[in-house]
Design a protein around this nucleic acid. Structure first.
Length: 668
DNA sequence: GTGGATGAG
DNA sequence: CGCTCATCCAC
């Protein structure tokens, strides 16, 4: 509903002397305590750190906050703080151009990994080494964590609802806390409603003018005047604004960061609001001001309309403003965009957004990537970057508590870009083994090998490695006494292995010798990864020599690939239960476990078999303890229940006539 | 489950 | 721009 209409159409408005009742009901007030997306009293805040990366560097370097600071990534500037913006600096200019415009600019390069290092660092001359270093954004992730923790500490634990929206943004659903404060400050709101009827209107709101002086206030809609009495939604917003001011003060005082905020009825409006008064300001979008506020924007500034969908709308209706799009009837929008997208857009430009604040603060995946200029052309070059990616990802996994078994990823994914197209390969991370850096490295190499044999791998313009499917750690393998002991043994053995062949070697002459070995061992695994490939259609062409045309089945086979296929393919990798037939000897000291899809040295074979044995035993006990229907003894460990509730706007893909996909937004 | 695409910052 | 992160869909 429009926020302004009820005021205008209220019959009581004709009796100026008598104050009208609230337009809100006891039911809507109650819904506020539940953070319901349906209540018009809802209050959402969006908090956005000001020029975050630049502020991180300014604070890390202990510079006065008046110093112009930019963050440099190779030659590009990826963040510019507000003092620097006064000099006309913007993104898309180079560091040297910026220095000319602003000689006293502090131009700090991001931290980087260099080959062989076991940790990222701030290197003075990083920009000279775009070919061998990899950017690390870890410092900003760590600051982000501290800020998020600070925000959570400031809010009452029981009533908070915080969504981490990005490294420098959060959404807060303040509804429940505001409900509590309202009842406390205005006891007349405590129930029960008259006649115990929840549809009864709330008592008359306080008549004194509200003090908005500390906030930037968006102008009211036309026909609304500041003389109109406030209602409870205004009171709720004002309380929300107080809370946000306290949160921002805490972040400022404890961590020195400034941020901007928007307070409004929903996520979309709060986000637009937070950008309205930067830096270090907060903006309240009262319900009575929504139309005026929204109409001032190009709709491409609204979330989800910044991309192709927005372009499609512009093309379809020859305007990029909310104001003009308001004249388009809903069915016209639907005709052009599809029913769901059309009605979503119709509602959105009228200020409606019923999406929930998703109480989620932990990441679900992490990624390490590098664009290559110029492209890289060999498997061993790729492997060298994988080393760095793995070091990066593994150290971040350690921060996530992987070593303490708190959280651990389930899958590993390699993305590869060549020419216009990107392809990816992924594999499960075996859960039976301790998650080590070399395990990840091994898996990553295999994925790269798969990409290579699939063809058209070179020249490669971009590689990225990610791990995902983070789940809470297992409980400690109850009932398996031998596992932990053996696990320690395994660690010791792996340590010995590492001592002999250090994984994080120095860059230098020795690296050249070693990378040959990497290539060999990895090509050895190419063979293994041809399991499952259909022999009759042959295997992939040799991408380095043969560019296959799209759609053409080129069946040039790699002799050494098909060689071992038979034996490997025999028991296809599966989760079936059974005798220990899952360990396949590949060579004198090399095994492949088809249950885990993992390669093992002889030194780990016994432990691995023991682990399966113990786990099967445990699973049998479990299923016996339950019912006869439990036949899933060898299924993966029980999954985390569900990702909480509340997906952001329900989106469903549709195919357009042109075969392009676009988003469609369904009802919540 | 896998691989591609879109969108955000 | 380059590097992340999330979500969705066809398969």
């Amino acid at each position: 509903m429009s926020s302004s209409q009820p005021f205008l159409s209220s019959p009581l408005a004709t009796t100026p002397s008598r104050r009208r009742k609230s337009q809100f009901t006891f039911k809507q007030l109650h819904q506020l305590s539940l953070s319901s997306t349906a209540t018009p009293l809802r209050v959402i805040a969006h908090i956005d750190l000001d020029a975050f990366y630049a502020q991180c560097e300014q604070i890390r370097l202990n510079l006065p906050d008046t110093t112009p600071v930019a963050v440099q990534q190779w030659q590009a500037l990826i963040a510019i703080n507000y003092p620097a913006r006064k000099f006309g600096l913007s993104r898309h200019i180079t560091a040297s151009e910026a220095k000319k415009l602003c000689p006293e600019l502090v131009c700090q390069h991001v931290a980087t990994w260099k080959e062989g290092d076991e940790k990222w660092a701030y290197h003075e001359d990083a920009y000279k080494h775009i070919g061998t270093y990899k950017v690390s954004l870890d410092p900003y992730r760590m600051e982000s964590k501290k800020i998020l923790a600070c925000i959570k500490e400031t809010l009452p634990e029981k009533l908070q609802r915080v969504e981490k929206a990005s490294v420098d943004e959060v959404f807060l659903d303040l509804s429940a806390q505001i409900h509590s404060i309202l009842l406390e400050r205005y006891p007349q709101l405590q129930g029960p409603p008259p006649y115990d009827d929840p549809t009864e209107n709330l008592p008359t709101p306080p008549s004194s003018a509200l003090d908005w002086s500390a906030d930037s206030l968006v102008d009211l809609d036309e026909k609304e005047t500041e003389d109109d009495d406030p209602d409870w939604d205004d009171v709720a917003m004002l309380i929300g604004s107080e809370i946000v001011r306290e949160v921002r003060a805490a972040v400022r005082e404890k961590l020195k960061y400034t941020c901007s905020a928007g307070i409004a009825r929903n996520k979309m409006l709060s986000k637009l609001g937070s950008g309205h008064n930067k830096p270090n300001g907060q903006t309240v979008v009262r319900n009575r001001a929504i139309q005026q506020f929204l109409s001032s924007f190009k709709f491409t500034k609204i979330r989800n309309l910044g991309g192709k969908l927005g372009d499609e709308v512009v093309a379809g209706f020859n305007t990029d403003t909310v104001k003009e799009l308001l004249d388009v009837p809903q069915d016209q929008l639907q005709k052009r965009l599809g029913d769901d997208t059309g009605s979503w857009l119709y509602q959105t430009i009228r200020g409606e957004d019923h999406s929930e604040v998703n109480p989620r603060t932990q990441i679900k995946s992490m990624l390490s990537a590098k664009s290559f200029r110029p492209s890289i052309n060999t498997f061993e070059q790729g492997v060298r970057w994988l080393r760095i990616f793995v070091a990066d990802i593994f150290s971040r996994c350690v921060e996530e508590g992987v070593l303490e078994n708190k959280r651990r990823p389930k899958t590993i994914n390699l993305h590869h870009r060549q020419g216009g197209q990107t392809r990816s390969k992924q594999s499960p991370i075996p859960q039976g083994k301790t998650l080590t850096e070399e395990l990840l490295f091994d898996l990553a190499k295999n994925l790269l090998a798969q990409v290579v044999v699939d063809g058209r791998a070179w020249p490669c313009a971009n590689l990225s490695l990610s791990v995902g499917g983070f789940e809470d750690g297992v409980t400690g393998n109850k009932g398996i006494g031998t596992f932990l002991v053996r696990g320690e043994e395994a660690k010791a053995m792996l340590q010995n292995e590492r001592d002999r062949t250090p994984i994080l070697e120095d860059s230098g002459p020795s690296a050249k010798r070693r990378k040959v070995d990497d290539t060999k061992s990895a090509t050895g695994r190419i063979q293994n990864f041809f399991i499952g490939r259909d022999e009759s259609t042959g295997s992939a062409g040799d991408s380095e020599l043969e560019e296959r045309l799209p759609g053409v089945e080129d069946e040039q086979s790699l002799p050494n690939v098909t060689l071992e296929r038979e034996e490997l393919d025999e028991p296809p990798p599966s989760n079936q239960n059974g005798p220990p037939s899952h360990l396949h000897q590949q060579s004198i000291d090399h095994y492949f476990c088809s249950r885990c899809n993992v390669h093992l040295p002889e030194s780990e074979r016994a432990e691995h078999e023991d682990w399966h044995f113990a786990k099967d035993l445990q699973d049998e006990e479990r299923s016996a303890g339950r019912s006869e229907t439990a036949t899933n003894a060898a299924k993966p460990p029980p999954q985390k229940p569900a990702a909480g509730r509340g997906r952001p706007p329900g989106t469903t893909a549709k195919k357009t006539e042109k075969g392009q996909r676009k988003l469609a937004f369904g009802p919540q």
